[in-house]
Design a protein around this nucleic acid. Structure first.
Lengths: 333, 333
DNA sequence: GATCGACTCTAGAACGTTCTAGTTGCCAGC
DNA sequence: GCTGGCAACTAGAACGTTCTAGAGTCGATC
């Protein structure tokens, strides 16, 4: 029952049902202005013709796109978790998501450019790496929400975890277990949250009067970075280590175990992110988890407020993290 | 330099440059029909007004969308790899990608429905789980390419790895190392490729005259499934195991090591997928890799052929996998 | 019996593009 | 000086929706 070769339009349904195009539009949108009887008849015809509304035309005409652009990175397990939460949050407020991925050969700028052409109403960026000046320019054009990264520019909204607090939790936990010689493996220059986490570590150590024990080893976001840091630490092993993220922690764990240091017997280790693999039985990593549901809900809410033109009180929302205690931390001695 | 509050349109650029809308369109599309001088002038104005073409209107009018819908699953590291490849392949042929994710609370049907409304020219589904009858209906409406899964229905194009061959490679490798008591941990009913892999295992064992040693343990796609299978195997451990996928293999490895069976000393293990974590130092898993670049290139090519209305010779393309030998397999004894 | 309101429905103009079919202006050829 | 052809440009109709304004119809109210 196809009309020619092309997909059926409102006009096809209207003709077949013997009503006007406008009325079919009303029925399809479930808007008021049609009797129950015609509504039923039109829906029946639409179903029979296998009519599918054309989003392009719909959005074009109605002006407002109810579309949130999301830029995420491939191979970031944590981004997948955020995506899940964003879909939920967007659905709750009646928005759709337009995804654009960053891949090894498609950078953030390209991903953003793709979304701009789709006329998204706002942009949600997961851990954006582009300079904040560029973010600001973008934000001049449309609402922009950055997640997991702080941005100085006022125009950009920020929803992020309190990374410093995350490291306070980690250090507090280790101190409570009797540790004092606690080292930190850093995330490197390119990671937006690296500085905050390192600062959190330093502050917490000072607060416990362990200023003298502060020891920061340069690392990075990858497994290899953690392994390298571990080799550096081996010369004079601390009793506990906080690591920039889980992947790096996994690399560190591996080197420690290969050198026959028992975890947590000899060394306790805390990661960051609660990545899916951190709960894998092999790894069973104590780690700091970010509150995904809250973060995504707030990010979407903020984007929608901006779209609706609300004046937003505070442009940065900081969510407290929580510590997930697993098998890589234990009592000293 | 914004015109009012809304984003500038062709009409704004045209007015500012003192030419017709049609001419600006010509310039923006880089189509023939404008002098070098005006071209330059129009581009300059467009740049100044920060004009961004509206994809919705563009696609609506021009009819053909040059848009490939891709349905992928969140938390599937392998899907991320495929996405990367698909972006590359699509760019090469001048297509864009529209992504739609499957999340724990957004099923495949919902993901597909979203794309249908965006008027994608074709659909690429990564490891679709919906019944093949449904795929066929969908394929009646638009070109559909299923990856990593075989589909009986003629209308659906398929690009997949030769999963049976993957297990041949695994078994051949183990036999070459002297193994004969080789077990297989299955992927369970819901995994499309599970049956092919199991069949590959059985065939390979028979080919080596090891019919009597065939031993299939029921498993599944998750780490926990592998762990359960491992516990079942412990009663009478084989000298080698091929596992449905890497994640399951990781669970199995963990149980084996906890029970002080050395890998590969006592038991060799082969996974499947070459997931990112399989190369992690902890795991260092021998595994079967799928040829991502070839698969994605072919999938996109096939979709485009169908869009262009070409009659396609064979609707199923099967790519040979290759074995990645790492540290979990070794000489028997 | 006129007026109102409500409900149902419709015509036709938008939205921002691209496309078709011109219309100009200019130069070459006879 | 006319014709033809080409290059540069334009007017206006699409595309498939939604929206605005208004036209009918019916029953109730004055």
């Amino acid at each position: 029952m196809t009309v020619g070769d092309r997909r059926p339009t409102l006009a096809d349904v209207a003709a077949e049902a013997g009503v006007s195009v406008a009325l079919v539009s009303i029925v399809m949108r479930d808007a008021p202005g049609a009797s129950a009887a015609t509504r039923e008849r039109v829906l029946e015809v639409a179903r029979r013709l296998d009519y599918q509304p054309d989003n392009r035309a719909r959005l074009l005409r109605s002006g407002q796109s109810r579309l949130l652009g999301v830029v995420f990175g491939v191979q970031h397990p944590f981004h997948d978790d955020l995506l899940t939460g964003l879909y939920d949050a967007a659905e709750r407020v009646g928005y759709e998501l337009a995804l654009s991925a960053i891949t090894p050969r498609r950078d953030e700028r390209a991903a953003i450019a793709g979304l701009l052409q789709d006329r998204c109403a706002a942009l949600v960026l997961l851990g954006p790496q582009i300079p904040s000046a560029e973010l600001a320019t973008l934000a001049g054009r449309m609402p922009v929400v950055a997640m997991m990264r702080s941005v100085r520019q006022r125009q950009v909204d920020v929803v992020r975890t309190d990374d410093a607090r995350g490291l306070h939790l980690a250090v507090d936990h280790l101190v409570a277990l009797g540790h004092s010689r606690i080292a930190h493996v850093d995330g490197g220059r390119h990671q937006p949250s690296s500085a905050d986490r390192q600062k959190g570590y330093r502050d917490a150590m000072r607060r416990h009067g362990l200023e003298a024990c502060i020891r920061v080893v340069s690392g990075g976001p990858g497994e290899e970075d953690g392994a390298r840091a571990a080799r550096e630490l081996l010369a004079d092993p601390p009793t506990a280590v906080t690591v920039f993220n889980d992947l790096s922690a996994a690399g560190l764990l591996d080197v420690l175990r290969r050198e026959h240091l028992s975890v947590p017997g000899d060394v306790s280790v805390v990661g960051y992110d609660d990545s899916t693999f951190s709960s894998m039985a092999h790894i069973d990593l104590t780690t700091v988890a970010q509150d995904i549901e809250t973060m995504t809900t707030l990010a979407v809410a903020r984007a929608v407020e901006r779209i609706d033109g609300a004046t937003v009180a505070h442009r940065e929302v900081v969510i407290p993290p929580r510590l997930i205690i697993r098998g890589t931390t234990g009592q000293l001695g």
